[in-house]
């Protein structure tokens, strides 16, 4: 059986489905209990599973992640929520120096299984501190997996896969599309594999790579390009670390052209990694400059949010520039 759910409902559904079968799963965070989360991602879970499993913590991100690590070292599976990715920095030390390093520094003795959920990204009039897209910090940290879903089906499957994965996972939820679409989501538990990209649309002339909410901007731009006679292939990365190089390189080799789209600022963003990879491993197939359509190298603006975020005209412009080179 399946039914139509939004992305945020798929998050709740994944948590509920997994928690019913595994009493070692603990949710913790600010407002996740009684209130069900400020985005309602944990709606009804405290009522079903009790206060010991769905914990309203004191307001301190370092404490949320630090205690999640300690729970997990003792055999629980902690799934902390950071209310907005913008608020994660007090816990940065716990994530980067502790969570990500435990397995390595202990020679495999201690391996915390923590899945950090955090709504991220712009498009909700959230201004500077409710819009950031800083996945590159985490992708740049050895020992963390970074997962970003783009639709309801993948959200449930990737979140369950993340909770079951033995390694720490940053599960970044594109809050702009939390309620922007509905999709079929099976009632039972299932996984979507970590480390596998998806071809969201097939095409021959140019590869457009995106993830999270930008996937939909990329798809719309690709449809427009189609009307103008350009066949764009759109990849949904789904996992940044570990990256599915095979799917990426296969597409780039086929089309010979690359456009990367992400909300995060350009300099040292994940797009730079993708362009470098294509240059290292597929240069002989590349026929045009590889382009990045990204946020600007500025703090996230409030009033000019729609201009900051990559949109269809900007992506289309990049597609046209690369195919007409």
């Amino acid at each position: 059986m399946s039914r139509e759910l939004t992305v945020v409902q798929a998050v709740t559904d994944a948590l509920r489905t997994e928690m019913r079968g595994d009493d070692s799963i603990i949710l913790l965070g600010e407002d996740v209990g009684l209130n069900g989360g400020v985005f309602r991602a944990t709606d009804g879970l405290q009522k079903e599973f009790g206060e010991a499993r769905v914990i309203d913590t004191p307001l301190a991100e370092a404490g949320i992640i630090g205690t999640a690590i300690g729970m997990s070292l003792y055999g629980l599976k902690a799934v902390p929520e950071i209310q907005f990715l913008d608020f994660i920095y007090p816990a940065f030390d716990q994530i980067v120096n502790e969570l990500a390093k435990f397995r390595y520094r202990s020679g495999g003795q201690y391996a915390p299984n923590v899945t950090i959920r955090a709504p991220y990204g712009g498009g909700i009039k959230g201004g500077h501190y409710h819009s950031q897209s800083t996945e590159a910090y985490f992708a740049h940290t050895a020992g963390l997996k970074v997962v970003v879903p783009s639709n309801p089906y993948d959200t449930k499957g990737l979140l369950i896969a993340s909770i079951r994965d033995p390694d720490p996972v940053m599960f970044l939820e594109p809050k702009r599309i939390y309620r922007a679409m509905k999709g079929e989501v099976p009632e039972e538990a299932y996984t979507v594999p970590i480390g596998k990209a998806a071809v969201a649309k097939e095409g021959d002339d140019v590869t457009v790579v995106a993830y999270g909410s930008m996937l939909h901007v990329a798809l719309q731009a690709a449809m427009k390009a189609e009307e103008q006679g350009v066949s764009a292939e759109v990849l949904d990365l789904r996992t940044l670390v570990p990256l599915d190089e095979d799917t990426f390189l296969q597409s780039v080799k086929k089309t010979g052209r690359l456009v990367v789209v992400h909300e995060a600022q350009r300099t040292a963003g994940f797009g730079a990694e993708l362009v470098a990879l294509a240059a290292e491993k597929a240069i002989e197939h590349i026929e045009a400059p590889m382009l990045r359509v990204t946020g600007l190298d500025t703090p996230f603006p409030y009033a000019l949010e729609n201009q900051y975020l990559p949109d269809v005209p900007r992506v289309l412009d990049a597609i046209q520039r690369t195919v007409s080179y």
Binding site: A62, G66, T67, I69, G70, M71
Partner: peptide, 23 residues
């Protein structure tokens, strides 16, 4: 537990383990 050089990080972690013991 594994020793870390950064200071105090083990404090909230011990708290999490105590939570798990109680749980």
């Amino acid at each position: 537990v594994s020793v870390s050089s950064p200071l105090s990080t083990q404090i909230p972690q011990a708290v999490g383990t105590a939570y798990a013991m109680k749980y």
